[in-house]
Write a protein that binds this DNA or RNA. Structure first.
Lengths: 221, 221
DNA sequence: AGAACACTTACAGTTCTTGTAAGGTTTCTT
DNA sequence: AAGAAACCTTACAAGAACTGTAAGTGTTCT
């Protein structure tokens, strides 16, 4: 594992954590503007988030819930409130681990190492809109269903999921599919899109691939 | 999830756990002969094991380590020794979760529910001899490498991994491959074995598919 | 040595995947 | 409203992948 994002408003605590984690070999980033916590985290694309529950202004639970709904980032909740209620609620809304502060450094590292197992399994999984795409096997997971996509389908869906809700222009798709932006057979791309859309429809996926006329495509949900 | 095996020598504690878990909808089995703990667990093929550390005679750590080396069963270690050292060591040797007794029922259930995420991801994964086969996607994981097998290859390997180190007779393989034990084209099976062996060799797998003359095949490592 | 069993290679039918072509539909502009 | 541009859909065919069959070779047992 590489990147961990620490979400902690107490300066002393945050620096302490950062130091320990970096000593242990992790690449640590921190959140500075707590009004945009989720955005900052997503921009840093960490594999793990250390989340303090009592943030200034924002509710820690809400951050966790939002992160989990928008991504599959692994979340370790840290709090000084040593209450069973907090632990239950944190796990309930999808946190992957819960520890109370002050926390022994070795315990924290052991738990993080334990979480890496889970993270490794999620690796190479692109998620969005209820879809989960494994590029290693070109397999698409939708709820209970599991479908093996063709390489072309997987390539396109990967590009779309890498930029959820925003435009993927045709050049990008040409590049991803055929390794060049020059060779332009618009039709080949159109056919590929039709095929992908058809297999998504079969799965009754609520996600929609929207055409942006003259520019490209984007996925929405 | 369905099955949980409880490994606990204290009668009162064990029955208490069993009751709570069954109330929560799990199918619970227990280990009776602690000299054959690992064998009993493996025979029950649970998705999760609740393991008490101080068992009569046997060392709990050893049980955990053996379980983890022989299978990918998820292990939750329970102990009354509330020592950081125990927690670190348990996690170190591969335990998936660590809790101290007496443990609040709701906390235990919340942690179990949390483990189910991990279990779900491991589901449909057959392991053995450094191989990991995902039958949902017919993908074989060997160390860093990832290979998509053909359905035939995956079917055979599945049968072999289901009975590691012991014989899989031809009838079983005919059944798995073509749905009948009657239709016997020995040669078709032989060709299929050759193909599987070839793809395993490409991956420089140390596992060996051994022919048992006149009866079938078995995998060893 | 012969028989039984197993292994390997090559070939062919089938299916899957993908590029191409052709025609239809939608959207934009004037 | 008409024409053009962009996009969608369907069908066809070449190539690759998968699997069963056949034939010949190698190995093991008696």
């Amino acid at each position: 594992m590489r990147r961990i994002t620490v979400v902690e408003d107490d300066n002393f605590m945050r620096e302490e954590l950062q130091y320990r984690l970096e000593q242990a070999g992790y690449e640590v980033s921190v959140v500075t503007d707590f009004s945009k916590t989720v955005e900052e985290i997503q921009a840093q694309t960490p594999e793990l988030v250390l989340l303090d529950l009592n943030l200034p202004g924002k509710n820690g639970y809400a951050v966790c819930r939002e992160l989990k709904s928008k991504s599959s980032i692994t979340v370790l909740v840290l709090t000084s409130r040593d209450q069973l209620k907090d632990e239950l609620q944190a796990l309930e809304i999808g946190a992957d681990e819960f520890l109370t502060k002050p926390c022994h450094g070795e315990r924290l590292l052991a738990r993080i190492r334990n979480l890496e197992k889970r993270i490794d399994q999620q690796q190479n999984r692109l998620e969005g809109g209820g879809l989960s795409l494994d590029r290693q096997t070109d397999t698409l997971y939708v709820g209970e269903e599991v479908v093996r996509l063709t390489e072309q389908e997987a390539t396109i869906l990967e590009q779309l999921l890498l930029h959820p809700g925003s435009l993927v222009n045709k050049q990008q798709l040409f590049q991803a599919l055929w390794g060049t932006e020059e060779y332009i057979d618009e039709n080949a791309l159109q056919v590929a899109m039709t095929r992908l859309r058809k297999t998504l429809t079969k799965l009754s996926v609520e996600s929609r691939i929207v055409t942006v006329r003259g520019r490209g495509y984007q996925i929405e949900w």
